[in-house]
Structures are given as C-alpha cells and as structure tokens.
Design a protein around this nucleic acid. Structure first.
Lengths: 106, 106
DNA sequence: TCTAATACTTCGTGATACGATGTATTACGC
DNA sequence: GCGTAATACATCGTATCACGAAGTATTAGA
C-alpha cells in the first residue's frame, strides 16, 4: 500500500500488536503481516522510538540460549491507541470529502 | 491531527478539491480547511508534485489584475482517487486490528 | 556442511510537511 | 494617503522517518 498512507498506521499498529500481551520483534512482524507489512529495519526503528516516548517498555530475556527483547505496552501506549481512535473521526470525514460523488448538478 | 496520519491524505485531498472544477491554491486551502488544514508552503509543494506526476494540469490566468494559477485534475488524477478508495479496504482492516477489543477470553 | 529461519542492529538515502521569509497586488478603514 | 489585512504564490532549510542493504549471531534441518 501507499507509503504515505502507511505512515500514520505503523506506530499504532505496533502498539496494537502488544496491546494484550508482551511480544518480541520477530513475532510482531509475523502477527502484523496479514494487516500491514513492514521491513525489519522499520520495525526496530519504531520500537526504539516508542520506547523513547515511553509508550512501551523493554526487557531482555534469554530464550533458547539466545537473547530476545520483550516489549510491553505502557498506560501511555494504551492512551495513544485511544487518541488514534478519536482522530479517526477526522480521518473518516476527510475520506468522505475525497470520495463523495458530487457534482452540484448531479 | 497527527502529522503522520495526515500524510496519506494530503495529496488525495488536494486532488479531491479540484475533482469537480478547476480551482486555485488559495481557494483550495479554504475549501479543505473544514476537513484538513495544511500550510501554504505544503500546498504549493504538493501542487508542484502532482503536476510533475501529471495528476493535474496548470494554466495561468489573470484575475483582477493579478496572475492566478488554475489547477485542473487529469484522468490520471481521477484514477489516483479511485486507487485511494481501493486501498481504503486495507486501511480499514488495519483500523480494526488496532481497535478491536480482545482479550482471548472475552 | 550448507541453507534457512530466528533475532536484532546500524548506516545511508530519499521523500516530504512545515515554519520562516519574501514578493506583489488589492481592498478597506481611518 | 497610509497602515493593515487579505489575496496569491514561491523558496529555503530543517527535522522526521520508512526502507533497503548489509552485518552479527545462533539454532534447526536437510
């Protein structure tokens, strides 16, 4: 899909991927894949950004002899999702503006 | 609204503003204002980009002793709007992913 | 032993929205 | 006649950001 359109969805989609339970990068990528594909470099950049914004926290744990980073959403992260929902009204209003069939004389 | 979310809507919103009749920058800005606000520099950058992509054409005409640039959508521009509509399905699917209330046990 | 999958990182690049600033004309109030 | 706002468009620099490419390392399977 169009990159620009994607941009507004990426961050919030990553947050949604850990909304219910903590997860790690590779798994998130696979969970999101049916909805939204992103490259690994993009995901890890986003995860770092979200951590800096305190929308999620990270812990490192060993799994099968290898280190894995688990990401957990914070209350601020959940609030970010709620903000997104609120903004969606505006988005839909723009969508209607773009797609409405007029024609003052139609 | 969130800049990232805006990004995917800007180009197509500008195209929508001239979907039915040609218009000029300043007027477009006012027409779009109830839906989506953007700065002048952003609009003129977008108009130039859309012209280069041949999604609209420009003609310069005098109006009240002053030059004005009138923008007119091309068939490719109308097609761009149709593409946007198609992509909206994907967008809505992501929206549902982000907002769904689960809870494996709900 | 070679390859694929898992898992995360870093770097450079190109796209782009925006504020700041500039130019120029018209319209209006005082 | 003078200042200000509105009209109308343009340019420049900056910060953000998604991505491809490439790298590091381990494990599993053929």
């Amino acid at each position: 899909m169009d990159i620009q359109l994607k941009r507004g969805l990426l961050d919030v989609c990553v947050l949604a991927a850990i909304k219910n339970e903590e997860s790690y990068g590779y798994k998130m990528l696979k969970d999101m894949k049916p909805y939204l594909e992103m490259s690994e470099s993009t995901l890890y950049t986003i995860l770092k950004r979200l951590e800096l914004s305190k929308l999620l926290t990270v812990r490192t744990a060993e799994h099968g002899g290898r280190l894995r980073k688990y990401y957990k959403i914070t209350p601020a992260g959940l609030a970010r999702i709620e903000d997104f929902k609120s903004e969606w009204r505006e988005v839909m209003s723009i969508y209607r503006f773009v797609t409405k069939e007029d024609g003052a004389c139609e």
